[in-house]
Design a protein around this nucleic acid. Structure first.
Length: 396
RNA sequence: GGGGCCGUCGUUCAGCCAGGUUAGGACGCCAGAUUGUCAAUCUGGAAGUCGCGGGUUCAAAUCCCGUCGGCCCCG
């Protein structure tokens, strides 16, 4: 099981630092979890991930169930043994994937019938099977099966998904109670504040080891995302970890932490790294741009990552344009380092009781945030009515 | 001296033989997208006096003549 103890609250906002202990280690929060859907963060070996300072990885029950199969992994000694990853593992339930990518699915109160995206074979995922899979994987923190609605969705859809998510959450608790695996519930309710509150209350009443906020960053306006975090957090017990699923960009993490979130996962540092979008304190660097062709400087002169110690932008651009796998690796390493550093900086700021000052500085350094409404609001420039939200959402 | 091949966006090639809408592709360039990763890419945009000059034709990158440049073969 897990233990969670809050170390410090920021005096001016809901940000907090804490320590999360699992059977596979202790993690300082707020923490970011790289996404290793298939049991690997693409391009990075487990010991490298650990060397980068990460103690948590997110894997996925849906994907591992389809391939290679959770029984196989169980026979191999569980996901830790199978992959060589010594840190903690959170496993996603697959609810998100079944909404975002499985065709021919049918959702009933019993579960989700779907066809594999790999071979078209028919499957039926119930809350019970979902728990069975995650327990077989040897997950440290399991996620309850939830029904995630796409964005946008009607109030009726959102309401139905909340009701179903609660029912499934109950069943997940029933089959996993007494086991060695922690279990988090997932708050749904789309962009409806009342539904979000209801969902959070339902889950708290059932009682989980932690609470996640799901169904966000699906293309909604950024302001709506933040509002949903706020209404949900207000219903969650301060004593338990709060996990914002699938989010996000560095600025999303900052806003999430400010609103009391403890854990995050997102594909962005790894996926964006693969496609040449590199993070720095000053903003993004698109390594493919010709302006870097002869640039001998590192991605970020202030970055302490192993990539910035050794490699120039010119070389990284060459690797990217040549489609070399080393480019993928180096870019991913840099981005993950940036995320780890960002989280560490936020934790320090909280412990110093100065999170808001950190946030101010964060935005001031970010040259590429100038167009975002969030930035405009915070720094007091530009037009705060300009939408800062991203577009659509899918993938899974 | 004789003959042949090739010159088309930054690069590299289609198109020419059987002339006909805004001359295409690839790479490169520029911009955008990506948030609980099936996968990785995807979407736009800019860019060409078709080596040059004549001719034929309603119409020429395309056919004809000349010319310049590059390459090759035979003497």
């Amino acid at each position: 099981m897990i233990a969670f103890s809050v170390v410090q609250h920021d005096p001016q906002c809901a940000a907090r630092s804490a320590v999360l202990a699992t059977p596979h280690g202790t993690i300082d929060t707020p923490a970011f979890m790289p996404v290793g859907t298939l049991g690997t963060v693409k391009g990075i070996a487990p010991d490298e991930l650990q060397g980068l300072g990460f103690g948590l990885m997110l894997s996925n029950a849906y994907h591992l169930y389809l391939r290679p199969g959770h029984q196989l992994i169980q026979e191999q000694g569980g996901l830790h043994q199978f992959t060589g990853w010594k840190g903690s593992i959170v496993t996603d339930s697959g609810g998100f994937q079944l909404v975002s990518l499985a065709n021919l699915r049918e959702i009933t109160d019993d579960g989700i019938s779907f066809r594999s995206h790999l071979d078209g074979s028919a499957h039926h995922l119930t809350p019970e099977l979902c728990m069975e899979i995650q327990m077989a994987l040897g997950s440290d923190i399991m996620m309850a099966l939830d029904e995630c609605q796409p964005h946008p969705c009607s109030k009726e859809q959102a309401q139905a998904s909340v009701v179903r998510t609660t029912k499934w959450a109950n069943r997940c608790v029933l089959v996993s109670r007494g086991r060695q695996h922690a279990l988090f519930g997932i708050v749904q309710g789309a962009l409806d504040a009342d539904l979000r509150r209801q969902s959070a209350r339902d889950l708290v009443e059932i009682g989980f080891d932690g609470y996640a906020i799901g169904g966000l960053s699906l293309g909604e306006e950024k302001r709506a995302l933040l509002a949903m975090i706020e209404v949900s957090v207000a219903e969650l017990p301060p004593s338990h970890p709060r996990y914002l699923m699938g989010v996000g960009l560095p600025e999303d993490l900052v806003e999430g932490v400010m609103r009391g979130m403890d854990m995050f996962d997102c594909v962005i540092p790894s996926r964006h790294g693969r496609t040449g979008w590199l993070f720095t304190t000053q903003g993004r660097v698109l390594i493919k741009h010709a302006q870097h062709a002869k640039d001998e400087s590192p991605i970020d002169a202030q970055c302490g990552c192993p990539v910035c110690q050794k490699y120039s932008r010119a070389y990284l651009r060459h690797l990217y344009l040549s489609n070399e796998m080393l480019g993928v690796r180096l870019n991913t390493i840099h981005n993950l380092w940036y995320y780890r550093e960002l989280m560490a900086t936020m934790r320090s700021a909280i412990q110093a009781g100065a999170f808001l000052a950190f946030r101010q500085r964060f935005y001031e350094q970010r040259r590429d945030c100038a167009k975002s409404a969030l930035h405009a609001e915070l720094v007091g420039v530009g037009d705060p009515t300009v939408a800062g939200g991203s577009k659509k959402g899918k993938d899974g």
